[in-house]
Design a protein around this nucleic acid. Sequence first.
DNA 1: CATTGTGAACGATTTCACAGCC
DNA 2: GGCTGTGAAATCGTTCACAATG
Lengths: 263, 263
Amino acid sequence: MATGRTHRPATRSRGIPEATVARLPLYLRALTALSERSVPTVSSEELATAAGVNSAKLRKDFSYLGSYGTRGVGYDVEYLVYQISRELGLTQDWPVVIVGIGNLGAALANYGGFASRGFRVAALIDADPAMAGKPVAGLPVRHTDELESIITDNDVSIGVIATPAGAAQQVCDRLVAAGVTSILNFAPTVLSVPEGVDVRKVDLSIELQILAFHEQRKAGEETTSAQEPAAVQPRSGAAVRTPAAGRAAGKGPDGDVPAVMPA
Amino acid sequence: MATGRTHRPATRSRGIPEATVARLPLYLRALTALSERSVPTVSSEELATAAGVNSAKLRKDFSYLGSYGTRGVGYDVEYLVYQISRELGLTQDWPVVIVGIGNLGAALANYGGFASRGFRVAALIDADPAMAGKPVAGLPVRHTDELESIITDNDVSIGVIATPAGAAQQVCDRLVAAGVTSILNFAPTVLSVPEGVDVRKVDLSIELQILAFHEQRKAGEETTSAQEPAAVQPRSGAAVRTPAAGRAAGKGPDGDVPAVMPA
DNA sequence: CATTGTGAACGATTTCACAGCC
DNA sequence: GGCTGTGAAATCGTTCACAATG
């Protein structure tokens, strides 16, 4: 099913760069903490430290939103909270559905951050008939058959996919057909969606693999690497070359799980 | 807080750009799928489609690894699987610990992708004495008291933090003190770590907020007609974005106090 | 006079386009 | 002929440094 494709000049974000958008929630969290402690104003330096970025970047980011600071003083915390919330669209309520109520889906349903800031879990959906009706995080699990009606009845535009990889594309297609235009995908698959639909992906094993890369590099650093098995003969004609499947030196014969889907 | 100078000159990746490293796991997954279907070779175009990127980028990425393809033919699937696995450090076994066995921690423990590709869950750790001994995903939960000995005994260098935000920094400090040098953080907090320790962050509410931003823009477009030069609305395509890289960050004088906490 | 806001320099990443090779 | 590998160009993101200003 060739599909895939779909790239575009990326977000024509009308001003605000994508990288900045990705940091706004970070600033918002830091500001909310300050707000709860009734701190009235904050400098770019302080806020940057709290958010884990540097101050120049923060000021540049804010400059895309407008001039919300006061020279010589800093930023008004409450005002900034409001401005960023508005910019992110969090002043309105976003109903979301979570599809796939396994371990991960249940964890997501219980995630406090959902309810707390602009998001409301409209429904939990699972394909297993045995799950139907069972309460998870205070909501009854609904069967996949109801997916379309749930979406339209609640005007859901954001969907979270926490199904096994094999089911993700199908679920995605149904969500999109029913009107969802933003998807947060936890399944380890590349989803193909029509233009106009946004997909963000969260992938545990990818994060771990990136860590492993850096970890490996640290380890090798001590011995000034250059450990290329010089014998590498890319002469890809065929022939020699260690069998893939990599993975070596297991501790125990622990079932190496052929893993049909890297779940 | 001396100017939170905790930044490393950004990965001294010795050759391979960070952006490329972040995509290698994607390629690896696509290649593994091809391998399971016994596909012998693949072109950059096909593989790129399967991985959800464009072919020029993929070829450029591979060029940092070496010349592993054959002009006029493509790439040998098995060979590439091996090379990427090796580059990522997945030919060895990485023991990891998961700290915080709530909903999320349990979900992670059950995550098939852990065991399946180079990672082995060495232990599950929780601060709740009532949890101790209870089996989760086939492993008995261990108490936090044992954290240090577990790390050293198993030579763990990668830790996963799935605790509430308030406990994260403390857990992080103990992990690092015990020898962990890579951390995957699910708690919504900025962790401060000494130089040489890598932190990656996965934050659900941030991902949702980014989606909300784009969702809002789509909604607003309909009413406030965009004055984009092009007649057709050039909206964001189906860009799939992975969470931004989590770099180490300056410390935070505040205690914790994030607005949201995971289960 | 401390601090914002921002042009301009710099650096990283993506895309183009085509030479080189099988 | 088809496809890789890669310089060069284009784009995007970060950092510098300082003028503007409450």
